[in-house]
């Protein structure tokens, strides 16, 4: 019953946990609660500035006031679209690459490093690389398109195109993590299962669907959740690649721009951290609902497959 002994020894694990728990509360729970409180105020985020309780005004403005509210809801929709494409493509690509690089191939360590390398670059470097690659006046891709008589503004073109490029870069930047998690999962599957399947006459597809896929369940779940939550909260690449442009904003970037008074040139704007906090809570609820729903179905699947 007492796993860690009796008497004072019982409290040792709790004492050991205490620093971590305290850090979590100070660094994560505290600011989250403060954000919730801020969302009901007109706080500007400036020290000494008066802070007034405004009740649900920020939420009402974000969700219902004028065309701006419809633009906000469009940003929510765009965030979901971004999440869908990033999650599905990154997941599929990561799985395929992991399976290939799990084979006994010459130079596989080199390729593993190559695919993982973008992950260790910061968003600014990632953005810079792609900005140069997509430079419309003679960049590599512009030259390739030019040989077919085509041209594009890429990141500076119509919002849909610019948005699609951010999806591409987001996948490129993070696919390495997905791949590594799948690789780790693949390496935990015993070779005996594959041998048994082959002896039973299973072809490659049957081996994958009946051995690899079910036994990869923990990696599948981890990757899906990480991809979904990461893409719902994405904003840095939007800032670095295209800036604040109509028709491209996702919720995360909208919050940043509103909360920190991002401007266009010298046009002044306002600091509205109370309003931005309300938008953050909307995003939090969205991530929570989607995250819990996905987790519920993944758990059920895991219980069914693995037991």
């Amino acid at each position: 019953m007492y796993h860690f002994g009796r008497g004072r020894a019982r409290w040792v694990p709790y004492l050991l946990l205490l620093p971590g728990v305290l850090a979590y509360f100070i660094m994560a729970v505290g600011p989250s609660l403060a954000t919730t409180v801020f969302s009901f105020t007109d706080a500007s985020g400036l020290p000494n500035a008066p802070v007034n309780w405004v009740g649900l005004d920020n939420y009402e403005e974000f969700l219902f006031l004028g065309q701006a509210a419809r633009d906000n809801l469009n940003a929510v929709g765009r965030t979901l679209v971004f999440c869908f494409f990033v999650t599905t493509i990154q997941f599929a690509l990561g799985l395929v690459v992991a399976i290939i690089l799990n084979q006994k191939l010459r130079g596989r360590n080199f390729f593993r490093t190559l695919y993982f390398m973008p992950v260790i670059l910061g968003a600014v470097i990632q953005g810079l690389i792609w900005t140069l690659f997509l430079y419309p006046l003679g960049g590599p891709l512009a030259q390739i398109l030019g040989t077919f008589g085509l041209r594009s503004e890429f990141l500076g073109g119509p919002p849909t195109e610019a948005f699609a490029w951010v999806i591409v870069v987001q996948i490129w930047a993070n696919m390495g993590v997905t791949m590594i998690i799948f690789l780790a999962g693949l390496q935990t599957i015993s070779e005996e299962y594959y041998e048994a399947a082959r002896i039973d006459g299973a072809n490659a597809w049957q081996v994958f669907t009946n051995v690899t896929w079910p036994l990869l369940t923990p990696s599948v779940n981890t990757n899906l959740l990480l991809n979904i939550i990461g893409s719902l909260q994405a904003w840095q690449l939007f800032l670095v690649l295209i800036g604040y442009r109509n028709g491209t904003q996702v919720l995360g970037y909208l919050i940043y721009a509103t909360g920190f008074g991002q401007t266009s040139g010298s046009v002044t704007s306002s600091f509205r951290q109370g309003y931005a906090a309300a938008a953050s809570i909307v995003m939090f609820v969205m991530v929570l609902v989607i995250g819990l729903t996905v987790q519920y179905f993944l758990r059920r699947r895991e219980e069914r497959l693995v037991g």
Binding site: E61, L65, G66, Q67, A68, A69, R70, D71, E153, G156, G157, P158, P159, T160, N246, G247, V267
Partner: peptide, 24 residues
């Protein structure tokens, strides 16, 4: 001089960049 009222939509500005090929 311009200050926008709360609730305006994102296109409430006289910007040439809303036109193709930079906009939609």
């Amino acid at each position: 001089y311009w200050v926008a009222p709360r609730g305006v939509g994102q296109y409430a500005a006289p910007w040439a960049s809303f036109f193709q090929p930079f906009g939609t």
